[in-house]
Design a protein around this nucleic acid. Structure first.
Lengths: 253, 253
DNA sequence: AAAATTTGTCTAGTGATATAGACAACTATA
DNA sequence: TATAGTTGTCTATATCACTAGACAAATTTT
């Protein structure tokens, strides 16, 4: 019995007939194990036979899991030598009353920016109207953006602003690449995060494409309302983070 | 160019050969759709043939998805009539500086409590020692608890306290079923959440058992440090929430 | 009563997933 | 150089996942 004890980890085993294939479950566990810091950068994974024994599966099944992670750029396999962790650690993304994309990630990455993907004017849906405190059907501007750090997508957001009040914010965003700078043009020097609701789900087809994820990946979903210091709603936003690359740090509590 | 439909809903499609079976992907999407409020309580799901057409799969595949959700208590199928949503909405779980289990869920459920599962004394690991600001290897008390609301598990936590300072807190927890009440016995009338780190992952075998989840489910993981008002660490805790039943609301920002 | 709608069950065929074993290719080490 | 350890490839087989079609059973509508 390979009583492999991993510190505090449970003996995480495999569920059959669950709708999730064995190789993917193993890939997920390896990924989780790497993210948890069980392997140093460039460290060797246990050999395939050992992993197969540990998970109680055939070696070929382990190979399927590994090859998915190699495809994904997480591992590198070298014939005769072993399989090695390329692992980039997860970004710790701060969430707080004054969270700004750029400030919080300082020091963790060398390069980061926001890309404006599309913008459109549309009538406010029920939940957006509620969030912004306006009547349902009022025109709002929707900005779709992607946040990138070191060339990898780390967030994907849709943000809604009241159209009448923020005419031209799409151009400002495209030009400055910064929400804070864009809002300055509308006389808003400061804004606060009023509320945030967090959930998690499997990535859908859009997430897979937008965030460059593999099927089966998990996204963290944050729905937030930003307000001026005196409490007037400015922005309603839904942001999706790839759970494998990002963790959320609630620091300003 | 795929004209991306952005009504509110993405054209949520199915990924083949992803390691996640088609029926599970559909089950997840239906679940997500229910959680998003697309169906009223007791509303009828579209008929199987319609769903099959919409997802571009065989009717039997849709039936697999539905039967998993029926097994899971989310849907009820009635021959000749249709399939109906039993849907219990997700609990909105508040996370803030002064989050207490009981207070925040008020009004959302009729019954809620914390069960102490096990307790043990063990040497502090690196990360726990760091969190509590003590030397690695110092004895700490670990309390394993489960939070339940309306008879369903909504959280599963491991909390660590310095053993010397909080001798007997396990008994206090067992007796009172409340962290706040237990800490009062040690002269702590108030405590704050210093920091919280959030992530999400697939539920492992332990989560499945502890939280009564189906394989493939997602858990939100919150790692928190609680401190006294003057900043002394009291408790280091890791809490897992079932993403399908709980969302986290960051309100006290 | 009849028709239409919907879920439930059955059979059959195809492709993906997983197991099993053997051996080749490459690397590091004794 | 020889050996042990590791990844890469091949064949074969069994099981699961998905498709396809047909019909039964139950309910609602006409």
């Amino acid at each position: 019995m390979g009583t492999k004890m991993v510190g505090q980890k449970s003996a995480s085993s495999i569920e059959r007939r669950s709708g999730v294939s064995v190789w993917r479950q193993i890939a997920d566990q390896i990924l989780h194990s790497i993210a948890a810091g069980d392997f140093a950068e460039n460290a060797a994974l246990p050999p395939e036979v050992a992993l197969a024994e540990r998970y109680g599966v055939n070696r070929h099944t382990v190979r399927s899991a590994i090859s998915a992670l190699v495809q994904d750029g997480v591992l590198r396999a070298e014939q005769g030598r072993g399989t090695f962790v390329l692992s980039r650690k997860r970004l710790s993304y701060p969430i707080g009353a004054r969270t700004r994309f750029s400030t919080g990630l300082q020091g963790q990455t060398s390069e980061r920016h926001i890309v404006l993907l599309t913008s459109a004017i549309e009538p406010a849906s029920q939940r957006i109207a509620e969030g912004l405190g306006i009547a349902r059907g009022t025109d709002v501007i929707r900005l779709e953006t992607r946040g990138e750090a070191d060339g990898r997508p780390v967030s994907r957001a849709a943000a809604w602003y009241e159209a009448k009040r923020f005419t031209g914010i799409d151009a400002a965003m495209a030009e400055t690449g910064s929400v804070t700078a864009s809002l300055k043009r509308f006389g808003i020097d400061d804004y606060l995060r009023q509320s945030t609701v967090l959930s998690a789900r499997h990535a859908d087809a859009a997430d897979l494409a937008d965030l460059d994820l593999q099927p089966g990946a998990i996204v963290l979903v944050a729905i937030a309302v930003n307000v001026t210091p005196d409490g007037r709603p400015i922005q309603f936003a839904e942001t999706r983070f790839p759970a494998e690359r990002v963790e959320l740090k609630l620091s300003a509590l």
